[in-house]
Amino acid sequence: MQKLLVCYKWVLDEQDIKIAGDLSLDTGRAKYKISDYDKNAIEEGVLLAEKHGAGVEALTFGTEAARQSLKDALSRGLDKVYWIGDEAGKQADAFVTANILAAAVNKIGSFDLILCGEGSSDSYSQQTAPRLAGLLGVPAITYVQQLTVVDGRIVAIRKLGDCTEEITVTGPAVISVLPEINKPRIPGLKQVMAAAKKPSEEIKVTDLGLAAEKLTPKVRSTSLKGYSMDRKKVIFKEANPADNVAKLVASLAQEGLC
Protein backbone atom coordinates (compact mmCIF):
# COMPACT_ATOMS: atom_id res chain seq x y z
CA MET A 1 0.00 0.00 0.00
CA GLN A 2 1.59 3.23 -1.17
CA LYS A 3 -1.11 5.88 -1.46
CA LEU A 4 -4.34 6.56 0.44
CA LEU A 5 -7.05 9.16 -0.10
CA VAL A 6 -9.60 10.40 2.42
CA CYS A 7 -12.78 12.21 1.40
CA TYR A 8 -14.27 14.64 3.90
CA LYS A 9 -16.95 17.32 4.10
CA TRP A 10 -16.89 20.83 5.59
CA VAL A 11 -20.21 21.30 7.40
CA LEU A 12 -21.98 23.63 9.79
CA ASP A 13 -21.32 22.88 13.45
CA GLU A 14 -24.67 21.60 14.68
CA GLN A 15 -24.11 22.86 18.22
CA ASP A 16 -24.16 26.43 16.88
CA ILE A 17 -27.48 26.04 15.06
CA LYS A 18 -30.45 27.62 16.84
CA ILE A 19 -34.14 26.78 16.34
CA ALA A 20 -36.39 29.82 16.00
CA GLY A 21 -39.98 30.06 17.21
CA ASP A 22 -41.35 29.02 13.82
CA LEU A 23 -39.00 25.99 13.90
CA SER A 24 -36.79 27.45 11.16
CA LEU A 25 -33.04 27.00 11.63
CA ASP A 26 -30.93 30.01 12.50
CA THR A 27 -27.41 29.40 11.16
CA GLY A 28 -26.33 33.03 11.25
CA ARG A 29 -23.76 32.47 14.00
CA ALA A 30 -22.89 28.87 13.16
CA LYS A 31 -19.25 28.05 12.51
CA TYR A 32 -18.02 25.31 10.19
CA LYS A 33 -16.09 22.17 10.98
CA ILE A 34 -14.95 18.91 9.41
CA SER A 35 -17.84 16.47 9.72
CA ASP A 36 -17.30 14.41 12.88
CA TYR A 37 -17.71 11.14 10.95
CA ASP A 38 -15.07 12.25 8.46
CA LYS A 39 -12.62 12.96 11.28
CA ASN A 40 -12.68 9.23 11.92
CA ALA A 41 -11.93 8.57 8.26
CA ILE A 42 -9.01 11.02 8.32
CA GLU A 43 -7.64 9.47 11.49
CA GLU A 44 -7.87 5.95 10.08
CA GLY A 45 -6.14 7.01 6.89
CA VAL A 46 -3.30 8.65 8.81
CA LEU A 47 -2.92 5.64 11.12
CA LEU A 48 -2.67 3.26 8.16
CA ALA A 49 -0.21 5.56 6.41
CA GLU A 50 1.98 5.77 9.51
CA LYS A 51 1.94 2.01 9.97
CA HIS A 52 2.70 1.09 6.36
CA GLY A 53 4.86 4.02 5.33
CA ALA A 54 2.32 5.22 2.79
CA GLY A 55 1.31 8.67 1.64
CA VAL A 56 -2.12 9.98 2.65
CA GLU A 57 -3.97 12.82 0.95
CA ALA A 58 -7.50 14.19 1.19
CA LEU A 59 -10.19 15.47 -1.13
CA THR A 60 -13.12 17.71 -0.22
CA PHE A 61 -15.96 19.20 -2.23
CA GLY A 62 -18.30 21.98 -1.19
CA THR A 63 -18.80 25.68 -1.65
CA GLU A 64 -16.01 28.25 -1.50
CA ALA A 65 -16.19 27.81 2.29
CA ALA A 66 -14.36 24.49 1.85
CA ARG A 67 -11.14 26.50 1.61
CA GLN A 68 -11.44 27.18 5.34
CA SER A 69 -11.04 23.46 6.10
CA LEU A 70 -7.52 23.07 4.72
CA LYS A 71 -5.50 24.02 7.78
CA ASP A 72 -7.57 21.86 10.12
CA ALA A 73 -7.41 18.86 7.77
CA LEU A 74 -3.66 19.16 7.20
CA SER A 75 -2.99 19.49 10.94
CA ARG A 76 -4.47 16.01 11.40
CA GLY A 77 -1.55 14.26 9.70
CA LEU A 78 -2.45 14.49 6.01
CA ASP A 79 0.26 15.15 3.44
CA LYS A 80 -1.86 17.21 1.05
CA VAL A 81 -5.46 18.30 0.47
CA TYR A 82 -7.26 18.74 -2.84
CA TRP A 83 -10.30 20.98 -2.56
CA ILE A 84 -13.20 21.85 -4.83
CA GLY A 85 -15.19 24.98 -4.04
CA ASP A 86 -18.13 25.61 -6.34
CA GLU A 87 -21.68 26.97 -6.23
CA ALA A 88 -22.84 23.45 -7.08
CA GLY A 89 -21.94 22.54 -3.50
CA LYS A 90 -24.93 24.45 -2.13
CA GLN A 91 -27.54 22.02 -3.45
CA ALA A 92 -25.34 19.00 -4.20
CA ASP A 93 -26.82 15.65 -3.21
CA ALA A 94 -24.96 12.32 -3.06
CA PHE A 95 -25.41 11.90 -6.83
CA VAL A 96 -23.63 15.16 -7.68
CA THR A 97 -21.06 14.78 -4.91
CA ALA A 98 -20.06 11.28 -6.04
CA ASN A 99 -19.82 12.40 -9.68
CA ILE A 100 -17.51 15.28 -8.79
CA LEU A 101 -15.37 13.24 -6.39
CA ALA A 102 -14.98 10.41 -8.91
CA ALA A 103 -13.96 12.80 -11.67
CA ALA A 104 -11.48 14.48 -9.31
CA VAL A 105 -9.98 11.12 -8.29
CA ASN A 106 -9.49 10.19 -11.93
CA LYS A 107 -7.81 13.54 -12.50
CA ILE A 108 -5.53 13.29 -9.45
CA GLY A 109 -4.40 9.70 -10.07
CA SER A 110 -4.80 6.20 -8.71
CA PHE A 111 -5.03 5.29 -5.03
CA ASP A 112 -4.74 1.96 -3.21
CA LEU A 113 -7.51 2.86 -0.78
CA ILE A 114 -10.13 5.59 -0.47
CA LEU A 115 -11.69 6.23 2.94
CA CYS A 116 -14.93 8.05 3.74
CA GLY A 117 -17.04 8.59 6.83
CA GLU A 118 -20.16 6.43 6.96
CA GLY A 119 -22.20 9.61 6.45
CA SER A 120 -21.86 13.35 6.86
CA SER A 121 -23.07 15.04 10.03
CA ASP A 122 -25.45 17.29 8.09
CA SER A 123 -27.41 15.10 5.65
CA TYR A 124 -26.08 11.63 6.62
CA SER A 125 -27.31 10.06 3.36
CA GLN A 126 -24.74 7.20 3.53
CA GLN A 127 -24.72 7.12 -0.28
CA THR A 128 -21.54 8.92 -1.28
CA ALA A 129 -19.05 6.11 -0.62
CA PRO A 130 -21.00 3.35 -2.46
CA ARG A 131 -21.74 5.71 -5.37
CA LEU A 132 -18.10 6.72 -5.57
CA ALA A 133 -16.99 3.09 -5.66
CA GLY A 134 -19.50 2.33 -8.40
CA LEU A 135 -18.28 5.22 -10.54
CA LEU A 136 -14.65 4.22 -10.06
CA GLY A 137 -15.40 0.55 -10.70
CA VAL A 138 -13.85 -0.68 -7.44
CA PRO A 139 -15.20 -2.64 -4.44
CA ALA A 140 -17.13 -0.80 -1.72
CA ILE A 141 -17.07 -1.88 1.91
CA THR A 142 -19.42 -0.07 4.29
CA TYR A 143 -20.06 -0.01 8.08
CA VAL A 144 -16.42 -0.79 8.84
CA GLN A 145 -15.48 -0.82 12.52
CA GLN A 146 -12.01 -2.35 12.18
CA LEU A 147 -9.52 -2.11 9.33
CA THR A 148 -6.14 -3.70 8.72
CA VAL A 149 -3.86 -4.29 5.76
CA VAL A 150 -2.12 -7.68 5.69
CA ASP A 151 0.28 -8.68 2.90
CA GLY A 152 -1.19 -6.03 0.64
CA ARG A 153 -4.75 -7.19 1.20
CA ILE A 154 -7.39 -5.08 2.93
CA VAL A 155 -9.19 -6.83 5.79
CA ALA A 156 -12.31 -5.07 7.08
CA ILE A 157 -14.67 -6.00 9.90
CA ARG A 158 -18.19 -4.73 9.16
CA LYS A 159 -20.83 -4.14 11.82
CA LEU A 160 -24.21 -5.44 10.67
CA GLY A 161 -26.93 -5.21 13.29
CA ASP A 162 -26.21 -7.86 15.91
CA CYS A 163 -23.37 -9.54 14.01
CA THR A 164 -20.11 -8.74 12.25
CA GLU A 165 -18.75 -9.72 8.85
CA GLU A 166 -15.12 -10.00 7.77
CA ILE A 167 -14.31 -8.91 4.22
CA THR A 168 -10.97 -9.28 2.47
CA VAL A 169 -10.26 -7.50 -0.80
CA THR A 170 -7.32 -6.46 -2.89
CA GLY A 171 -7.22 -2.72 -3.47
CA PRO A 172 -8.08 -0.31 -4.78
CA ALA A 173 -11.33 -0.06 -2.82
CA VAL A 174 -13.61 2.53 -1.23
CA ILE A 175 -14.30 2.02 2.47
CA SER A 176 -16.68 3.93 4.74
CA VAL A 177 -15.86 3.73 8.44
CA LEU A 178 -17.97 3.93 11.59
CA PRO A 179 -17.17 6.38 14.42
CA GLU A 180 -16.16 3.52 16.71
CA ILE A 181 -13.18 2.61 14.51
CA ASN A 182 -10.92 5.09 16.32
CA LYS A 183 -10.68 8.25 18.36
CA PRO A 184 -9.59 11.20 16.19
CA ARG A 185 -6.52 13.04 17.42
CA ILE A 186 -6.69 16.65 18.56
CA PRO A 187 -3.97 18.59 16.73
CA GLY A 188 -1.50 20.45 18.94
CA LEU A 189 0.15 23.79 18.29
CA LYS A 190 3.09 22.11 16.52
CA GLN A 191 0.77 20.26 14.12
CA VAL A 192 -1.30 23.38 13.43
CA MET A 193 1.81 25.42 12.62
CA ALA A 194 3.23 22.65 10.43
CA ALA A 195 -0.05 22.51 8.48
CA ALA A 196 0.64 25.98 7.09
CA LYS A 197 3.66 24.57 5.23
CA LYS A 198 1.84 21.60 3.71
CA PRO A 199 0.53 21.74 0.13
CA SER A 200 -3.06 22.13 -0.99
CA GLU A 201 -4.43 22.25 -4.51
CA GLU A 202 -7.66 23.66 -5.85
CA ILE A 203 -9.53 21.72 -8.52
CA LYS A 204 -12.12 23.52 -10.62
CA VAL A 205 -15.37 21.74 -11.44
CA THR A 206 -15.09 23.17 -14.95
CA ASP A 207 -11.84 21.22 -15.42
CA LEU A 208 -13.45 17.86 -14.63
CA GLY A 209 -15.26 17.49 -17.95
CA LEU A 210 -18.63 16.65 -16.39
CA ALA A 211 -21.83 17.03 -18.40
CA ALA A 212 -24.56 19.30 -17.03
CA GLU A 213 -26.77 16.36 -16.04
CA LYS A 214 -23.99 15.02 -13.82
CA LEU A 215 -24.11 18.28 -11.88
CA THR A 216 -27.90 18.35 -11.52
CA PRO A 217 -29.12 17.02 -8.15
CA LYS A 218 -31.62 14.17 -8.10
CA VAL A 219 -32.84 15.37 -4.70
CA ARG A 220 -33.34 19.01 -3.70
CA SER A 221 -33.94 20.33 -0.20
CA THR A 222 -36.75 22.87 -0.29
CA SER A 223 -37.01 23.56 3.44
CA LEU A 224 -35.57 22.42 6.73
CA LYS A 225 -37.12 22.80 10.14
CA GLY A 226 -36.27 21.82 13.68
CA TYR A 227 -38.15 19.09 15.52
CA SER A 228 -40.58 20.08 18.23
CA MET A 229 -41.17 17.65 21.08
CA ASP A 230 -43.93 18.15 23.62
CA ARG A 231 -43.01 16.48 26.88
CA LYS A 232 -45.58 15.58 29.52
CA LYS A 233 -43.08 16.25 32.31
CA VAL A 234 -44.60 13.63 34.60
CA ILE A 235 -42.54 13.25 37.79
CA PHE A 236 -42.83 10.26 40.12
CA LYS A 237 -42.01 11.14 43.73
CA GLU A 238 -42.55 7.93 45.68
CA ALA A 239 -40.19 7.41 48.61
CA ASN A 240 -39.27 3.94 47.38
CA PRO A 241 -37.28 4.11 44.09
CA ALA A 242 -38.73 0.76 43.09
CA ASP A 243 -42.23 2.21 43.22
CA ASN A 244 -41.13 5.07 40.93
CA VAL A 245 -39.75 2.58 38.41
CA ALA A 246 -42.95 0.52 38.55
CA LYS A 247 -45.08 3.59 37.91
CA LEU A 248 -42.84 4.68 35.04
CA VAL A 249 -43.07 1.26 33.39
CA ALA A 250 -46.85 1.17 33.87
CA SER A 251 -47.19 4.64 32.35
CA LEU A 252 -45.06 3.71 29.33
CA ALA A 253 -47.01 0.48 28.88
CA GLN A 254 -50.30 2.38 28.97
CA GLU A 255 -49.07 4.53 26.07
CA GLY A 256 -47.92 1.45 24.15
CA LEU A 257 -44.24 2.30 24.44
CA CYS A 258 -43.11 -0.91 26.10
Rank of each mutant, 00 (worst) to 15 (best):
T27Y: 04
T27C: 04
T27P: 01
I34K: 00
I34Y: 00
I34T: 02
S35T: 11
Y37K: 03
D38H: 05
D38W: 04
N40E: 07
N40Y: 04
A41V: 04
A41L: 02
I42G: 01
E43N: 02
E43R: 02
E44A: 10
G45M: 03
G45D: 02
G45W: 00
V46I: 08
L47Q: 08
A49C: 15
E50P: 10
K51M: 09
K51Y: 09
G53S: 15
G53A: 15
G53I: 15
G55F: 15
G55Y: 15
V56D: 02
A58N: 02
A58S: 07
L59M: 09
F61P: 00
E64T: 12
E64V: 11
A66I: 06
A66L: 05
R67I: 04
Q68D: 09
Q68M: 07
S69L: 11
S69C: 12
K71T: 12
A73C: 03
S75F: 03
R76F: 09
R76E: 08
R76Y: 10
G77L: 09
L78D: 01
L78E: 00
L78Q: 01
D79Q: 14
K80Q: 09
V81Y: 01
V81F: 06
I84V: 06
I84Q: 00
I84P: 00
G85V: 06
G85R: 03
A88I: 14
A88F: 13
A88N: 11
A88S: 13
G89Y: 09
K90L: 13
Q91N: 13
Q91E: 14
Q91I: 12
D93L: 13
A94F: 10
F95H: 10
F95Q: 09
V96P: 00
V96K: 02
A98M: 10
I100G: 01
L101G: 05
A102S: 11
A104P: 01
V105I: 12
N106E: 15
S110E: 07
F111E: 04
F111M: 08
